[in-house]
Design a protein around this nucleic acid. Structure first.
Lengths: 337, 337
DNA sequence: TTGAAAGCGATACCAG
DNA sequence: CTGGTATCGCTTTCAA
């Protein structure tokens, strides 16, 4: 049988109350007995039942994390960030995965609630809105790490418009005019439609017309990048000179499609990706990218929660800086003239 | 305040006992009232406090997963597999990360115990043995998904020797004789020393001598692959014609190092990787690989636990088949003669 | 500084 | 079929 508080108390000749106080460093007690009790607990192999503790104290040091089951590896980076500040604060992470199945989604939601999480970090790009509503109803703070969901919801994320704008700016600077957005450009999810809109706005802000704007794809996959220039457009006469990939893998798909068809990057097509994870350094040519600081997003988000935990605070939006890293996948059209 | 069982019972004019029975579908009750209660619970926004339930029933449907913080993406694949069979069985996954810090490791261990997990799945390549010992002491079943830890511990994994042997076999078949194992070849962790040993054994089994055997690197990283032929050996006169990469990324590093120095794969170096994840299809040339079925490892492992949960069973070792996939990174030396 | 006792929310046994 | 109640392991007043 498991060793319980009571067992330790008996062995120590103390009451459970005292032992509890000692083991949680709460309340008053003498250091002498405390030392003895701690050693005893150790010897006896006592491990607190956190479920019972949470139940009794009516609070919980668990926060939920909702991750899309099919995720680009940015999720791992964010989790690393969350983990870092979580582990040093004594909180626990309850990581759950979200797939397309509605029953499963509900099950995940139930798990989150039934484990009394104090907050939920959303890494999913595509969260059912009912889940967010219900979470909010239950007074659980929701923090989005990938997009601005609404004004009631805190978010820690990159500044989408700034990212997109800096790319468009850079590309135009390099003499490009006809530019494609490749990857997830659909209108049905928050983040993809945001990017699509931002892209178009940024282009028109730069006095480019709709005929200079190209959109392709419904997801952030390698395949979408690949097929965009093979089945999507005629690779031998692409109507654009540069492509913005909504994820690194899309950019890699673009590169491979080009090289598999005897074309080269950046001579035949310039590419800038969004995310800036390892793949951009591995790719040949190395990919020019806007790098998001995912671990920092995780760290700051967790910190935000910890700070606001004490008092009820208003939803906040925090932007984590991004960086345009120039590598070898963009051709300067000005200098080739 | 949160809605509790009692609230629902009061509202329904029933006892908590009855409501509990209804909501857990256990014991006898009339369908008529049951329906009413279920609707009521729904309306009132009742969600069971699983902590309390677990405490009361003295069992727990939680299993722990220990993942290395720095992981190659195979961990994600395994988790997907675990998730699949976990979610349909009503169990929950408690995913924890393990880094190098000893204090953190102990904290993770405490979390696992204090949350009453019934089993722990180890995805880590480098697990502190004290953790395993203590887990076993506490009657928690440990299941390794990456290596054979010991006879007392169940494992669901690929057959390491078979994998290595099939590669060596294939390479020799292709006329190679001087072969390097690149990646994690150190002696200090279970899996890497196993591979090292298997590699050497397989080579000598094929009548090759120590002078035909080369070893390089201490981790499964891209960088290790890259530096192996740049700083490790003289890229202009490599003493081996083929390299076995202990992970896909190591192979990619090898490819890049070669091509960055004007060499080509497989003409100047043949490569076979272990793992067979997406990167092997993305690489150019596409990488020949021994593919491990990670999702299946996860699924079977979880199933193994579920099956054995009822009765105490002996530790089992289950091998999940692997597959040698021939692509474009190995040169047939016989035909070039 | 220490102890007694009342919960926390749910389960399960035992009556009714 | 339904209700009362002890219990799970721990925290937390309130007294002593």
């Amino acid at each position: 049988m498991k060793v319980t508080l009571k067992d330790v108390a008996n062995a120590a000749g103390l009451s459970v109350a005292s032992v509890s106080r000692i083991l949680t460093n709460r309340g008053r007690y003498s250091e002498v007995t405390a030392k003895r009790v701690r050693e005893l607990a150790q010897e006896m192999g006592y491990y607190k039942n956190q479920n019972a503790a949470d139940l009794s104290s009516k609070r919980s040091r668990v926060v939920g994390v909702v991750v899309p089951l099919i995720h680009t590896n940015f999720a791992d980076e964010i989790i690393k960030g969350l983990y870092e500040t979580t582990i040093s604060s004594g909180y626990e992470l309850l990581i759950t995965y979200l797939d397309e199945d509605e029953d499963h989604q509900y099950q995940v939601f139930q798990t989150l609630l039934s484990r009394q999480v104090g907050a939920v970090f959303m890494l999913s790009l595509d969260i059912p809105s009912w889940m967010i509503d219900k979470l909010l109803e239950e007074q659980i703070s929701v923090i989005s790490l990938t997009a601005l969901l609404s004004e009631q919801i805190s978010a820690v994320t990159s500044n989408e418009f700034e990212m997109m704008n800096s790319i468009v700016d850079y590309l135009i600077d390099m003499g490009h005019k006809n530019i494609a957005l490749v990857g997830d450009t659909k209108l049905t999810t928050n983040i993809s439609s945001t990017r699509r809109t931002n892209f178009i706005k940024s282009m028109t802000d730069h006095n480019l017309a709709y005929e200079n704007i190209f959109l392709y794809g419904n997801d952030h996959s390698y395949e979408t990048g690949y097929t965009s220039v093979t089945t999507g457009y005629d690779i031998n006469q692409l109507p654009f000179t540069a492509a913005i990939a909504t994820a690194d893998m899309v950019g890699q798909g673009l590169i491979n499609a080009m090289s598999d068809h005897g074309k080269t990057v950046p001579e035949d097509l310039s590419i800038v990706t969004i995310d800036g994870l390892q793949q951009t350094e591995i790719a040949r040519p190395k990919l020019t990218t806007v790098k998001q600081d995912f671990p920092e997003i995780g760290r700051i988000a967790m910190q935000l929660f910890l700070d606001s935990d004490s008092e009820k605070t208003e939803p906040q939006i925090i932007y984590i800086p991004t960086e345009l890293i120039q590598r070898d996948s963009v051709l300067n059209l000005n200098s080739t003239k």
